Amino acid sequence: MERKEIMELMQNIFTSSEAAEYLNISTQRLNQLVHEKRIDPIKVSKSVMLFLKSDLEKRKIVNVSNKANPQNADCFDINNSFVRDAILYYTIQQYFNNNDKRTCQFIEQIQKVNNFDFHRGLPINIPLLSSLLKVSEKDFYNKYTRVKESFLSLPNDVVLVKKGDDIYSKLLAETKEAAPYLFLKGNVHLLAEKSVCVVGSRNASLDSMEKTERIVKSLIQRNIVVNAGLAKGIDTATHRSALKYGGRTIAVIGTPINQYYPKENRNLQMEIEKKGLVVSQFPPCNVVNRWNFPTRNATMSGISLATIIMEAGETSGALKQADYALKQGRDVLIPQSAINNPLIKWPTKYVLKGAFAFRTLKEVLEILNKNELLLDLFNKSDMEEISDVEMD
């Protein structure tokens, strides 16, 4: 094919950013349309999606019609069966204290015994579900309406994915703690990348914060995504360091995707939405409970190949993360200084359970390099670039 012919052909092929600009929507919204199979890219890989202009023109007609109703232009689209299934799921969950495990067990049982099907429609499902849950049809419908309205409060750049979907983290899906749905905002493809979690105390020392920055910088320079829980202290240092050095970061939050906690990290969360990815397993209809945060630790560990705990007290939530990580077969790394600290006992306990101790940046990379899923990710030159400067 001649160069001129190739140039003419390329005029009809758009990248993700070009397609979003052409449709006058965000790239996050474009990702959701692809996920919902309302736009079919001609090529998809971890780093790129390509679209035909003719396919986008068909969608542009739909977008123009949406502008006639500006009141709903920025709302999350609930008019597809995939989202409606999620709304019904979270309505059922309301009767099980927002517990995914109990909700899924109930649904599995009634699918076998009562031939329950999400797609049979509310006129059939509401009488069935209200009878099985021993509540009135009015009560169930009122809850359904409240859940549906909460979904409408979401911005339209939120992407909803179900366990088993291509976008859903494959690593997380293999764990017992995997949530049935995830709410995403940002670069959803980061869930397919190799990721390491760096967490710790909310009231961390300056020394630990500085060491966190050094480790994060070292990881992102080697194309590793770093994730944390957007909490004060070490988590905040992890996210800020990744952004500071042009890296990629994932924030796994303990609130619904449209809430900001802690409030002082609102701007940081918004920056991660633009430059990284924010993940929540909690629907917009649910209140924030204290157990949300240890629950999300399982998700944070689940998407990670390893967890590094930079500093923690005996009752720190980071230890819950370590528990989940070891249970899920992930590596846990602890600074030698924590093990040597006579005021805390948890580091020694976790080393006996299988956690690794490290003193230097080089040791961190060497431990990760032996990880089954990261095996030999770093070559000899990578190792030689890291000096044996003590972390402790």
Rank of each mutant, 00 (worst) to 15 (best):
F282G: 05
G254A: 13
L268P: 04
L277P: 04
P256Y: 04
G247D: 01
N258E: 05
L268A: 11
F282V: 02
E273Q: 14
N286L: 10
L243T: 01
Y260V: 10
N267D: 13
Q269G: 06
K244G: 03
E271C: 03
P283H: 01
K275S: 06
N267V: 07
P256C: 11
K275D: 14
P283A: 11
E264H: 13
Q269D: 04
Y260T: 04
Q281M: 05
I250M: 08
Q259H: 15
V252P: 00
P262F: 04
G246S: 09
Y261A: 15
Q269W: 04
A242L: 01
S280H: 02
I250N: 00
K274N: 15
E273R: 07
P262S: 06
Q281A: 14
A251G: 15
Y261H: 13
I250Y: 03
P283I: 06
A242T: 03
F282Y: 15
Q259F: 09
A242H: 05
P283L: 08
K244A: 10
P262K: 12
N265H: 15
N265C: 10
C285H: 13
K244N: 10
A251C: 08
Y245T: 11
P262W: 02
I257V: 14
P262D: 13
C285I: 13
N267Q: 14
Q269E: 14
A251K: 02
N265L: 09
V279A: 03
P262M: 11
E273N: 14
I250T: 08
L243P: 01
R266H: 10
F282N: 03
N286T: 10
T249D: 03
G254K: 05
G246Y: 12
I272H: 04
E273F: 12
Q269T: 06
V278C: 07
A242W: 00
K244M: 07
E271T: 08
V252K: 00
P284F: 00
F282C: 12
R266G: 06
Y245A: 11
R248L: 14
V252W: 00
Q269Y: 02
V252T: 05
P256I: 01
P262R: 05
P256Q: 07
V279Q: 09
Y261W: 11
L277V: 03
G254R: 02
V278I: 13
K263S: 12
G247C: 08
T255N: 10
V279M: 07
N286G: 06
Q269S: 13
P283R: 07
G276A: 04
P256E: 00
K263C: 07
K275G: 07
Q269I: 07
Y261E: 04
C285Y: 06
V279R: 01
A242F: 01
Y245R: 08
G246M: 11
C285R: 08
Y260D: 11
E273C: 12
L268M: 06
V279E: 02
N258A: 11
N258T: 12
K244T: 14
N286P: 01
L268K: 08
L277T: 10
Y260E: 12
I257P: 06
Q259G: 12
G247N: 03
N267T: 09
M270Q: 15
Y260A: 15
I272S: 09
Q281W: 06
K263L: 14
K263N: 08
S280L: 04
G254F: 07
A242K: 01
K263A: 13
E264A: 09
P284I: 06
T249L: 01
E264N: 13
M270L: 15
R248N: 14
K274M: 15
P262Y: 10
M270V: 12
S280C: 05
